[in-house]
Deep mutational scan, measured.
Amino acid sequence: SISSRVKSKRIQLGLNQAELAQKVGTTQQSIEQLENGKTKRPRFLPELASALGVSVDWLLN
């Protein structure tokens, strides 16, 4: 799922939720909701993929 991929990649990069949120241009709460499965397809998906160094396709599939 996107939530597990985001969380595992974030941890692999040594980032906390607030640091990832800053790179993406969103809030820590938005990252938390995404990782908890409350958000399925965030509006900041391209920025998120870029910050994590992955493709949008990788996040979604």
Score class of each variant (00 low, 15 high):
residue 27 T to Y: 03
residue 48 L to Y: 02
residue 29 Q to Y: 11
residue 42 P to F: 12
residue 42 P to M: 09
residue 44 F to L: 06
residue 60 L to K: 09
residue 61 N to D: 14
residue 35 E to D: 02
residue 43 R to L: 15
residue 5 R to D: 02
residue 56 V to I: 13
residue 37 G to R: 05
residue 2 I to Q: 04
residue 38 K to I: 15
residue 54 V to A: 04
residue 13 L to R: 07
residue 52 L to V: 02
residue 47 E to Y: 05
residue 39 T to S: 13
residue 7 K to G: 04
residue 4 S to G: 11
residue 17 Q to H: 10
residue 36 N to G: 10
residue 43 R to N: 14
residue 32 E to Q: 11
residue 6 V to C: 10
residue 24 V to R: 00
residue 39 T to K: 10
residue 37 G to P: 03
residue 29 Q to S: 11
residue 23 K to W: 08
residue 56 V to R: 04
residue 50 S to T: 12
residue 36 N to K: 11
residue 20 L to T: 02
residue 49 A to I: 04
residue 38 K to D: 15
residue 50 S to K: 14
residue 49 A to K: 01
residue 48 L to C: 02
residue 4 S to L: 11
residue 12 Q to N: 09
residue 36 N to M: 11
residue 49 A to T: 04
residue 4 S to T: 13
residue 52 L to E: 01
residue 55 S to Q: 07
residue 10 R to C: 04
residue 57 D to Y: 08
residue 24 V to I: 11
residue 27 T to P: 06
residue 43 R to S: 14
residue 37 G to A: 09
residue 8 S to W: 11
residue 10 R to F: 01
residue 34 L to C: 05
residue 45 L to A: 07
residue 8 S to A: 14
residue 26 T to W: 05
residue 49 A to C: 05
residue 14 G to L: 05
residue 2 I to V: 10
residue 51 A to Y: 05
residue 32 E to N: 10
residue 52 L to W: 00
residue 48 L to I: 08
residue 15 L to R: 03
residue 46 P to V: 14
residue 49 A to N: 00
residue 14 G to W: 00
residue 31 I to H: 01
residue 20 L to C: 04
residue 6 V to R: 02
residue 58 W to P: 02
residue 37 G to V: 03
residue 43 R to Q: 14
residue 11 I to P: 02
residue 37 G to C: 07
residue 21 A to M: 01
residue 43 R to W: 15
residue 58 W to K: 03
residue 40 K to H: 14
residue 27 T to N: 10
residue 27 T to D: 12
residue 39 T to R: 08
residue 56 V to Q: 10
residue 32 E to Y: 06
residue 34 L to R: 03
residue 37 G to D: 09
residue 40 K to N: 13
residue 53 G to R: 05
residue 34 L to Q: 01
residue 54 V to I: 06
residue 4 S to K: 10
residue 10 R to I: 04
residue 28 Q to H: 10
residue 25 G to L: 03
residue 16 N to C: 08
residue 60 L to G: 07
residue 42 P to Q: 05
residue 59 L to Q: 00
residue 48 L to T: 02
residue 28 Q to Y: 06
residue 42 P to N: 07
residue 56 V to A: 08
residue 58 W to I: 04
residue 47 E to I: 08
residue 19 E to I: 05
residue 10 R to N: 02
residue 39 T to E: 12
residue 22 Q to N: 10
residue 16 N to A: 09
residue 41 R to A: 12
residue 3 S to C: 11
residue 1 S to P: 10
residue 2 I to S: 03
residue 25 G to P: 08
residue 32 E to P: 01
residue 54 V to L: 03
residue 25 G to M: 05
residue 8 S to M: 11
residue 1 S to E: 11
residue 2 I to A: 04
residue 39 T to W: 07
residue 56 V to H: 05
residue 35 E to C: 03
residue 33 Q to N: 14
residue 58 W to Q: 05
residue 45 L to T: 04
residue 44 F to E: 05
residue 39 T to N: 13
residue 29 Q to G: 11
residue 47 E to A: 13
residue 38 K to M: 15
residue 2 I to L: 15
residue 6 V to L: 06
residue 30 S to L: 13
residue 61 N to K: 09
residue 18 A to F: 13
residue 6 V to F: 00
residue 49 A to E: 01
residue 9 K to T: 10
residue 12 Q to K: 08
residue 15 L to G: 02
residue 18 A to E: 14
residue 8 S to H: 14
residue 9 K to C: 13
residue 44 F to W: 14
residue 7 K to S: 09
residue 39 T to M: 15
residue 34 L to D: 02
residue 56 V to P: 09
residue 28 Q to S: 11
residue 53 G to Q: 08
residue 36 N to F: 07
residue 25 G to C: 09
residue 6 V to Q: 00
residue 32 E to H: 10
residue 22 Q to S: 12
residue 43 R to E: 14
residue 42 P to W: 10
residue 28 Q to G: 07
residue 35 E to L: 03
residue 37 G to H: 06
residue 21 A to E: 02
residue 29 Q to C: 09
residue 53 G to T: 04
residue 50 S to Q: 14
residue 52 L to N: 00
residue 10 R to Q: 02
residue 16 N to M: 07
residue 12 Q to C: 10
residue 61 N to P: 08
residue 40 K to D: 15
residue 22 Q to V: 11
residue 27 T to L: 06
residue 16 N to K: 08
residue 7 K to Y: 05
residue 22 Q to A: 15
residue 13 L to G: 04
residue 36 N to S: 13
residue 13 L to M: 12
residue 19 E to N: 06
residue 1 S to N: 13
residue 24 V to K: 00
residue 1 S to G: 12
residue 52 L to M: 06
residue 9 K to S: 08
residue 42 P to V: 15
residue 34 L to G: 01
residue 36 N to A: 15
residue 22 Q to E: 14
